[in-house]
Nucleic acid binder design. Structure first.
Lengths: 234, 234
DNA sequence: TGGATGCTACGGCCGCGCCCGAAGCATTCC
DNA sequence: GGAATGCTTCGGGCGCGGCCGTAGCATCCA
């Protein structure tokens, strides 16, 4: 059956350390040049070029040429979601029974604290925000789905977030997607609401991207603002 | 970074034709013996045994030994969701711009019509049911999430489906998960509601599993019942 | 108790695909 | 114009990992 070979080919494309490294690096949602990706993957430009061609041809990456640079980014949220679910399964194993304690370097600590996950937030911070919204009746959350209550919608708008009103048949609610946090093993908020939340944090200067990693740094102002809106346990 | 290598290893495990074939076969949610899996993958028992050991060790499969047989099944809905998202991405490419028409064998036609997708229904039938529920205001559906309305909950119970009442903070609604149908390229219903729907169809005898494939056959009685409840375009 | 059958462990073969260096094209800067 | 930078294509080397046959261990059926 032809569909199975496409299935295997897709997974194989991701299951190669160099390519996996590139894809993981692109999971922060930004576009990177071929040379930057070569560096993160630890291969030469020649090798990276081949890998990037394959990923692009397979429709996982989109390329934009700008001068003598070529910027590569994930082709769609769908691809990001696929990578995310792979990470969740991979993370599950690692924390599983038989395996040894995960490495705990300083960089890993920052990653567990706060990071981007494609277009939304992840890590302790993100899980904490979701918990706070659930506790105050502003978010409904289950394994299968999540939605802002009308209350939650008003609240997030009130603190300055840009959110489109709910459209279509889902009147009164605005759906978002739960995303299993691979370090916390509990869901945080993804989808349109998650993306808006992330933009709000970055635009307001509550968090800042750290160089060379997906980790985020929470600014002093951010600590203040976030604990004001979402409770002090952040 | 250690988490990247786990990520790549997980994908690599899936990205090998024989293992991919086994996993795809298990996507119908049932448990199969090692020999059956060897057959579907087209390898000898010895080879299959090695693959199955790897998948089990990685936590993707759960094994249950019964007499001299060993039954293998997907370890969790999370693993199924991961495979599903890979299929969605793989399917997207295949229907993509540059590629040639997908193979249209008789078996593929049956698969497109109706099949199981882990624990729920997929194919034209499943997409049609979802459309019908949305049109009658019984289901809210978006890219980010889905939920039965109170109306929809009552309706499905009314036609004999077994559904747990909504729990937790999501009062009045019961979440389900949208799942992108790889043949129709539109969402159908997954999650707890999808599983209940699938059980209802099987238990009532509206659909029947076909031997050696994930395809489902709609019985004459099923045609009648389904079009009565969900409209004649099914 | 002997002989099926289902599955697993071991050894050796072989091929796919990753990797790099070098050379070639495009673009930008001086 | 020439030189530097970013990226791609080509050819050849080599190692990892899948495959099978055989042998060995469990389990079930006479």
């Amino acid at each position: 059956m032809t569909t199975i070979s496409a299935f295997a080919a897709t997974a194989a494309l991701v299951g190669e350390p160099a390519r996996a490294g590139m894809l993981a690096a692109l999971m922060d949602g930004r576009a990177l040049t071929a040379s930057e990706l070569a560096a993160v993957a630890g291969v030469t430009a020649a090798t990276a070029s081949g890998h990037l061609a394959q990923l692009t041809q397979a429709g996982m990456l989109a390329v934009e040429k700008q001068g003598r640079h070529r910027y590569h980014r994930l082709a769609s949220p769908q691809v990001a979601a696929m990578l995310e679910s792979l990470m969740a399964v991979a993370g599950g194993l690692e924390n599983g029974a038989a395996t040894r304690r995960p490495r705990v370097g300083p960089r890993d600590a920052a990653l567990r604290r706060a990071r981007t996950c494609y277009d939304h937030l992840a890590g302790e911070i993100a899980v904490g925000i979701a918990d706070s919204l659930v506790a105050s009746g502003r978010l409904d959350l289950s394994d299968d789905g999540a939605a802002l209550t009308p209350d939650g919608f008003a609240f997030l708008r009130g603190i300055g977030m840009t959110l489109d009103p709910p459209t279509g048949p889902a009147r009164g609610r605005i759906f978002c997607r739960p995303c299993l946090d691979w370090s916390e093993r509990r869901p945080h908020i993804a989808g349109a609401v998650g993306a808006a939340l992330c933009r709000w944090c970055l635009d307001g200067g509550w968090v800042r991207r750290m160089a060379g990693t997906r980790a985020l740094e929470v600014t002093p102002k951010g600590v203040q603002e976030l604990s004001r809106h979402f409770g002090r346990e952040l």
